[in-house]
Design a protein around this nucleic acid. Structure first.
Lengths: 248, 248
DNA sequence: CCAAAAGTGTTAGACCTACACCCATGA
DNA sequence: TCATGGGTGTAGGTCTAACACTTTTGG
């Protein structure tokens, strides 16, 4: 059975073409059936879609999420949704806020527990999903029309990410396994929405000890090839616990 | 109508006798009736209590909270609960996490949106409440037996507060309007659970500009009277937005 | 050889840390 | 006059901010 007063939404951030992007979908009950485990859940989901035509409209996009089945753990289920929708495992996922204004969704009383996820979009062809009509990346400042209060949720996620990135080394999750310092800097510039000084940025980031020199270099670039770095999981754990000051 | 799958809990922190305390209650449906607005809500609440005898036991204490009525905004209602339970207005209150493991409460499927509040317990006689059998302060490391997973929620609130206090000037909410620097330092020492250097602490805190010298002094103390300070709301707002580094 | 981005060092000022003694008050 | 906690300064090291040119690569 599905808790009809409760849904989970994931704001999935990706760093693509030097821009911060959000992954949105157009859901469809027929396809969601592959994900739901009982016929009853499917019927309930269909009803919810019927009550809100916007959910099925081609004009609107929505955050990736579903209602919560009664027997599922909240955090575990959020992870499950994310894995099924993207095909990725071990994604950085964090619950950040529960939205509960009484009028946020027309004709229904639904609270939404919102999560944000950070992924590197380059590896996988996310646009093919077995449980949605469409899944697509949108630049954070060029969002399409979205259903209900999804825009407010995205906004809130972005503000949370900005805070988070100042004190914890989470930004790295948005990069491929090997990355250049320029990519890392651009990422921070995009998230914090301000220019950083290259020399100071490099000094600061290197001093943290979080970077491992992979001894590799870029290839096939029409300019001096940059060194590639990875990040050190041990030091990452440590910095995550201790905190970190990245208020550049 | 009450959403029976959804409750709100408040972890109310207070700073008392140089210790961090949490306010807990023993609820009782008969008294809660004063707070609920319809007979239906009262009946539903009574049922919930009947299902879980621990809720009404004299052996157990619980976080201050109730189920959420369908027509109420989540954040607004949390504030309302807090105001009614404590008699205080304008309390610092922040939603910090939603607990949703499927087995966290026996025989029922309830998600709890948890808030933490910071108050200065000195002003008011909180132990008299019109909506509970008992309300009482407990030192954070001498908690009584608590119902369900309240201890985990308190733990999580404490961890959140510790993080928060490092980067935002929230600690001040726990103090009376006028306070001494030693009180402020002790507060930080208690929250962060470490000793701080007095001279450095004072320099740092004064440099932030957050303190206003009230020109008043302690009276009736058997030692040199300390200056009393207040905190500057304008600078507080500013520091709250910009962030702050208090990783002493 | 040109265009494009990578990579690098210094200096001045601010901030942080560690540390020990005198002061004001009431009992 | 004593016990108690209030209040203060300095020096050495570290971090930060501001700033411009040379290097490497592929086309």
């Amino acid at each position: 059975m599905i808790l009809k007063n409760l849904s989970i939404d994931c704001v999935i951030f990706g760093f693509k073409d030097n821009k911060l992007n959000v992954l949105l979908w157009q859901a469809e009950p027929a396809l969601l059936e592959n994900f739901l485990t009982t016929e009853e859940e499917y019927q309930q989901t269909k009803e919810i879609f019927e009550k809100n035509p916007a959910l099925a409209s081609d004009q609107y996009w929505g955050l990736i999420g579903t209602h919560l089945p009664i027997e599922e753990d909240l955090d575990v289920y959020a992870k499950k949704i994310l894995e099924v929708a993207t095909g990725l495992k071990n994604i950085y996922l964090k619950q950040f806020k529960t939205f509960g204004d009484s009028k946020r969704i027309p004709h229904m009383r639904v609270l939404t527990v919102a999560y944000y996820a950070l992924i590197n979009p380059e590896y996988h062809d996310l646009e093919l999903s077995s449980i949605a009509k469409a899944v697509k990346w949108f630049e954070i400042d060029k969002l399409p029309k979205v259903i209900f209060d999804s825009e407010a949720i995205i906004d809130s996620a972005l503000r949370t990410l900005r805070e988070e990135v100042k004190y914890h080394p989470v930004g790295f999750h948005l990069l491929p396994e090997n990355f250049t310092l320029t990519e890392l800097q651009t990422l921070y510039e995009v998230i914090l929405d301000k220019k950083l000084d290259t020399r100071n940025f490099r000094k600061k980031i290197q001093k943290m000890g979080l970077l491992v020199d992979t001894q590799k270099k870029q290839t096939n670039v029409a300019h001096r090839a940059a060194k590639l770095y990875a990040f050190d999981m041990k030091i990452y754990q440590q910095l995550t616990e201790e905190g970190l000051n990245f208020s550049i």
